[in-house]
Simulated scan of single mutants.
Amino acid sequence: MERTRIPSLNWLRVFEAAARTESFARAAVELSMSAPAVSQQVKALEAHLGAELFTRHAHAVRLTEAGRAYLPSVQMSLVSLETSTAGLFGRGREERLYVQAVHIFAQGVLAPLYSDFTTRHPGIKLVLTTGNAVGDFTHAFSDLKIIFGAPSAFGPAHDRLIGETLYPVARPEIAASIRTPADLLSHPLLEVATHRAGWPHVFESLRILGAGARFLMVDSTVMAAALAGQGAGVALARAPASDPIMAAQGLVPCLPGVGVMGLEYYHLVYPDPGTLRRPARAFRAWLMERMRTFDGPGAQV
């Protein structure tokens, strides 16, 4: 009789924690195990499946293609089992909630508000992951997604959160040399390739020609801020989500009082309100409440 291909539940729990934290040591702490025990459990799962799920490095592990493809199904199965158990036999000490957000929103908005959510909902363990490219969100499991731009590509239901205001920022010595909008053209301009609203949109709003502008293309506002913090050029702040990031890099406005409204918004995306699990409903209600009072452009009032 052919043996079942369904792995041990404990193996799957260990695999999920190791994959999410990208560390056997961090997974061990989370699961109250030793790192060697985590490694042993992962090896047992790999032997059972006949495939390597991780590539091992000195201080971290990385998912293989097979591991990356397997992770969403494992997470979905664990959540389904957790939900069924809580519904039939009462709630456990905590319920896990998976939220995926674009990096700038996670770092600039959710991180400062994290303790507020966990204080209000101590029975929910928030698992927050980030992404930047479209593929990061279309091939990963999550209860809720927070994306920037057109929400319909990521789910059938969505809530609009906040917008953004663009303004140029740089290191203080560079910002001090920029007295008029035209002075911006004397410096390399860090442009995020994935945004509809960038330097051309700012030039149009400020009524200056962009001819002769020197663009340095990057893939995210976080990277633009990091380079601007090293004096590589002038970046565009995307307030309010980018406020903590810009401050951490020591960047200041180049033209105080200048701000240009962006063209897109952040959205909370999910399959359908009626199918949301209890922790997802709680997070949605909490986030919408916080965004109504959030001091930023496009916030709901």
Score class of each variant (00 low, 15 high):
101 A>V: 11
114 Y>K: 14
60 A>L: 02
277 R>V: 05
259 G>W: 08
244 P>C: 05
214 R>Y: 06
249 Q>H: 10
65 E>A: 00
114 Y>P: 07
262 G>P: 05
256 P>F: 00
49 L>P: 02
193 A>R: 15
15 F>P: 00
40 Q>F: 02
246 M>L: 11
170 A>R: 01
80 S>L: 06
126 L>P: 15
214 R>G: 06
252 V>A: 03
146 I>Q: 05
16 E>G: 01
93 R>K: 11
80 S>D: 15
252 V>R: 04
109 V>N: 08
223 M>R: 15
178 I>W: 05
64 T>L: 00
230 Q>M: 08
96 R>T: 14
148 F>E: 13
226 A>P: 01
60 A>F: 03
212 G>R: 06
135 G>N: 15
234 V>C: 00
162 I>S: 11
227 L>G: 03
176 A>V: 01
30 E>V: 01
67 G>P: 05
285 A>F: 02
274 G>K: 02
130 T>G: 12
27 A>W: 03
276 L>W: 04
139 H>N: 14
273 P>G: 06
284 R>M: 07
57 H>T: 00
210 G>M: 04
36 P>N: 05
7 P>G: 14
53 L>I: 02
45 L>H: 00
280 A>S: 13
250 G>T: 09
163 G>P: 05
155 G>M: 07
141 F>Q: 11
294 F>R: 04
14 V>I: 13
91 R>W: 13
184 L>Q: 07
33 M>T: 00
229 G>A: 10
49 L>F: 03
108 G>F: 09
41 Q>E: 11
87 G>V: 04
1 M>Y: 10
47 A>T: 11
134 V>Y: 09
275 T>E: 15
119 T>Q: 12
3 R>Q: 14
223 M>H: 14
139 H>L: 09
89 F>Y: 14
22 E>S: 11
133 A>S: 14
131 G>K: 11
198 G>C: 03
200 P>W: 12
241 A>R: 13
91 R>K: 12
189 L>W: 03
289 E>D: 13
65 E>D: 13
285 A>I: 02
188 P>C: 00
291 M>V: 04
288 M>Y: 02
54 F>P: 07
183 D>T: 01
52 E>V: 00
6 I>L: 14
208 I>Y: 03
51 A>I: 04
20 R>N: 13
194 T>R: 14
227 L>Q: 12
125 K>L: 08
107 Q>H: 12
196 R>L: 05
225 A>I: 01
25 A>K: 10
210 G>S: 12
201 H>Y: 10
16 E>Y: 03
145 K>T: 10
118 T>P: 10
6 I>W: 05
231 G>A: 10
168 P>K: 03
103 H>F: 07
11 W>H: 13
1 M>C: 12
167 Y>H: 08
81 L>K: 13
213 A>L: 05
143 D>E: 14
122 P>D: 09
186 S>D: 09
282 A>D: 15
210 G>D: 11
116 D>Q: 14
